[in-house]
């Protein structure tokens, strides 16, 4: 679905933002893109969608070179930016104008998603809605476009707690064999039990890209009363519940993935994690 081969990108001269970037994303998956502020998560989404051009390297987005911005590619991509655009239209008019550009747009799905998000009136102007409500409309629209690729930059920012749960349910239901979703976020807990692949960016490069299954096969997430340090321990965090630890899963035990803990472990000891996953 997406291949990125040795891509370099700079916004200004002498300040390299992304270097030697390699990535392959497949259809039928929801990928979580994690990283600290300024690591280039949004830029990576923009590179995939052709909003910025790489200085070198090759990007293939659903079979197209994204910098050409061909209509055949654009009608199969929906990009939800972190900052929402100013839209001086009602929800109904927005649908009337933008839906015809997407051949697989489904009006019934759109209405259903709006209902689930508790957006009942399509006669309200989008710019008069709260940021959260406006985001719900655009998420519902994006899901209803049925594009092959859905890129979401911080989609849960501004959503209230019940809406975050609804978002997870709707996204999980919207994924198909032909569809690929990439969600970039800081709020790792919002992706809990939603994503099936984790990409972590650190130091302007992708340091981790693994499916959830692989992660729980190779790593053990546990809470321990004592801060026992053995050879398998990779990362430990002192919390109210006890010591949250990430260890090597030498005995093939089952454990529940803690995305936040995984992220901290990767950022703290990326060399060891890399070695472990390259075995």
């Amino acid at each position: 679905m997406i291949t990125i081969d040795n891509v370099e990108f700079t916004y200004k001269k002498n300040t390299q933002l992304l270097s030697g970037l390699n990535l392959e994303l497949f259809a039928g998956h929801i990928h979580g893109l994690l990283g600290k502020n300024g690591e280039g998560k949004s830029t990576l989404l923009k590179l995939i969608s052709g909003l910025v051009f790489p200085n070198s390297g090759v990007i293939n987005t659903i079979g197209f070179n994204p910098i050409k911005r061909k209509p055949e590619m654009l009608r199969e991509i929906f990009f939800l930016p972190e900052e929402l655009p100013q839209i001086l239209l009602t929800v109904e008019k927005y649908q009337e104008i933008y839906a015809p550009f997407y051949p697989n747009f489904n009006s019934e799905q759109f209405d259903q998603y709006l209902k689930e998000f508790e957006v009942y009136s399509k006669h309200d102007k989008l710019d008069k809605l709260s940021q959260g409500q406006k985001k719900k409309v655009l998420i519902a629209f994006g899901l209803a476009t049925n594009t092959k690729l859905l890129l979401m930059d911080e989609p849960t920012n501004g959503l209230d707690i019940p809406s975050k749960a609804q978002f997870r349910r709707m996204v999980a239901a919207a994924i198909t064999e032909e569809r690929c979703l990439v969600i970039s976020t800081h709020q790792v807990r919002d992706l809990d039990s939603l994503i099936d692949g984790i990409i972590i960016m650190e130091g302007h490069e992708i340091v981790f890209n693994e499916p959830i299954e692989n992660i729980t096969n190779k790593l053990l997430f546990k809470v321990s009363e004592n801060n026992e340090k053995d050879e398998t321990l990779i990362y430990t965090e002192n919390t109210i519940q006890g010591f949250c630890q990430v260890c090597e899963n030498v005995n093939n035990k089952d454990s529940r993935l803690d995305i936040e803990l995984l992220f901290n472990a990767v950022v703290t000891d990326k060399k060891r994690i890399k070695q472990l996953f390259s075995k």
Binding site: R69, L74, I77, L84, P85
Partner: peptide, 18 residues
């Protein structure tokens, strides 16, 4: 002028010539 509006415009599924 506004980056998010620009994204909205550039991502409309139509060619630049259109």
């Amino acid at each position: 002028v506004i980056s998010s509006n620009c994204i909205n415009y550039l991502m409309i599924p139509a060619s630049m010539i259109e």
